[in-house]
């Protein structure tokens, strides 16, 4: 990419600015005593102001510059990284957790075989599996899982609708932040199971109790996630938004929210975890026929019948649902957002 012509042949200059080189224009120089008065005279350079734009000559070799620029761009382009082959992904991403699960099962089986605890207290993996299979054949298990998942999802969505504007207010309005910011952080460290007795006293054994506990668990973490997302926005992006005219709600919609998205999604993930946890706590404690049967109630049923395989089976289901929703919904969304921003390869 050698620039062959260092000097573009110059066409004759217009009469006003013949080849007389630089013409420094003297200004009154500021001195100490000139503090109070304007330091420069008004401009009076008619020739400069009417100086034509250099259109014809600057474009003498437009293709030269275009070619040079294309070359620079090509040199800068490091190329896209090839997709990693599927076998490699499976080996590095899927194999380790499978091995870990197999190891845990093996240790569990070993503990069972050695009879570290009586079998009614420590059943084997197979016994737990059979307990779940029995529930499956009774035809109740899907209904139980759905009961909890739908409650969790609805609670999460309501928490989202409450937590998002709350987070925005705390993040952007100084007095609001000073007033409830610390309370919001404090609520996040309060185990939401602590709200169950209060909720039962307020709402009785109804769905309202369960949703109240879920909201009190999830809203603070969603709001706090958004606050920390907003706090970590590059101030330059906010300035750029202002310069482009994105102010008020337009600014929130086009700059503030998208810029805060990575932190917000982290908050949503945590909000879901808190929703799910609070829901299980509420279902476990607030059991009544009107409330229907969720996973928490299944756990409580197992306890009351001293049915350890069922208890462990219910715990496994709670775990699988929690991890499944994280892996199927939140992880892909988060990866996509981060990859678009070049924060993840």
């Amino acid at each position: 990419m050698a620039s062959t012509e260092t000097h573009v042949p110059q066409s004759p200059a217009p009469p006003g600015e013949a080849q007389n080189g630089p013409k420094p224009k003297e200004q009154t120089q500021p001195t100490a005593q000139e503090h109070s008065q304007p330091t420069i005279k008004e401009q009076s350079h008619p020739t400069a102001k009417e100086q034509p734009h250099p259109t014809p000559r600057e474009q003498a070799h437009p293709t030269d510059l275009a070619g040079l620029e294309a070359g620079l761009d090509a040199l800068d382009n490091t190329g896209t990284t090839p997709r990693t082959p599927l076998t490699h992904t499976l080996r590095t991403k899927a194999l380790p957790p499978l091995v870990a699960v197999a190891l845990v099962l093996a240790l569990w089986q070993l503990a069972f075989a050695l009879e570290l605890k009586p079998h009614y207290q420590l059943p084997s993996p197979l016994m737990v599996w059979n307990a779940l299979a029995e529930e499956w054949y009774k035809g109740t298990i899907l209904g139980i899982v759905w009961q909890s998942v739908s409650r969790g999802a609805l609670g999460f969505l309501v928490a989202l609708a409450v937590g998002t504007p709350l987070g925005l207010l705390v993040a952007r309005v100084g007095p609001v932040r000073a007033a409830i910011g610390p309370i919001l952080s404090g609520l996040q460290s309060l185990p939401s199971v602590a709200w169950v007795p209060a909720a039962i006293i307020w709402f009785g054994l109804t769905d309202a109790t369960i949703y109240a506990v879920v909201l009190l668990g999830a809203v603070p973490s969603i709001a706090n996630g958004l606050v920390s997302g907003v706090d970590r926005i590059d101030p330059l992006h906010l300035r750029a938004g202002k310069v482009l005219g994105a102010t008020g709600l337009t600014g929130v919609r086009h700059v503030l929210l998208p810029a805060a998205l990575p932190g917000y999604i982290a908050g949503l993930k945590q909000g879901w975890a808190f929703s799910w946890r609070s829901l299980m706590a509420a279902e476990l404690i607030a059991t009544s026929p009107e409330l229907g049967a969720g996973l928490g109630q299944l756990l409580e049923t197992g306890r009351s019948y001293q049915d350890m395989p069922l208890v462990l089976g219910a715990i496994l289901l709670i775990l699988v649902v929690g991890i499944g929703i994280e892996l199927l919904i939140f992880a892909p969304v988060e990866r996509r957002v981060l990859r678009h921003r070049g924060l993840l390869r």
Binding site: T6, H7, V8, Q10, A13, E17, Q19, N20, G21, P22, K23, P24, K25, E26, Q27, Q29, P30, T39, I40, H45, T47, A48, Q51, P54, R57, E58, A60
Partner: peptide
């Protein structure tokens, strides 16, 4: 503060290496 101003009458196309 504005210390001084210069008019630049060097014709285009200019290059940063130009003697002017």
């Amino acid at each position: 503060r504005i210390a001084r101003e210069w008019e630049v009458d060097i014709p285009h196309p200019r290059r940063i290496e130009d003697a002017d």
